[in-house]
């Protein structure tokens, strides 16, 4: 028996990756790993965009992936700069130590 590969499979896989990323974002306390989980979720969304673009026969989905990629790059740059700046001032910067947005 051969199961037909439809576009829905891609969406199911993307939902699975998104759920794993969302769970990891809550579970982990290291800000770097939390950023990686955000990247996982963004990638799941990218996969969804490409799948829907394929289903609707439109290039807009692929263009949107482009913008998501740029925003992800900007977010990582600023976020890692924040982590560097915070770690320089105090050791062991987990998310619990950073619950206040001040010194």
């Amino acid at each position: 028996m051969i199961v037909e590969l439809t576009q829905t499979w891609y969406l199911v896989l993307a939902a699975l990756i998104f759920a794993i990323g969302a769970t990891g974002l809550v579970i982990r306390r290291n800000p770097l790993v939390m950023f990686m989980c955000v990247e996982l979720m963004l990638n799941a969304v990218n996969l969804t965009f490409v799948s829907f673009g394929n289903m609707l026969d439109d290039v807009g989905g692929q263009v949107f992936v482009f913008f998501v990629l740029v925003v992800a790059a900007a977010e990582v740059a600023v976020g890692l700069a924040l982590v560097v700046a915070i770690t320089r001032r105090r050791q062991g910067a987990t998310a619990d130590d950073l619950s206040l947005m001040r010194g």
Partner: peptide, 9 residues
Amino acid sequence: CVAGALGVV
């Protein structure tokens, strides 16, 4: 993909 995602978490 799924194995890598689980590894990240």
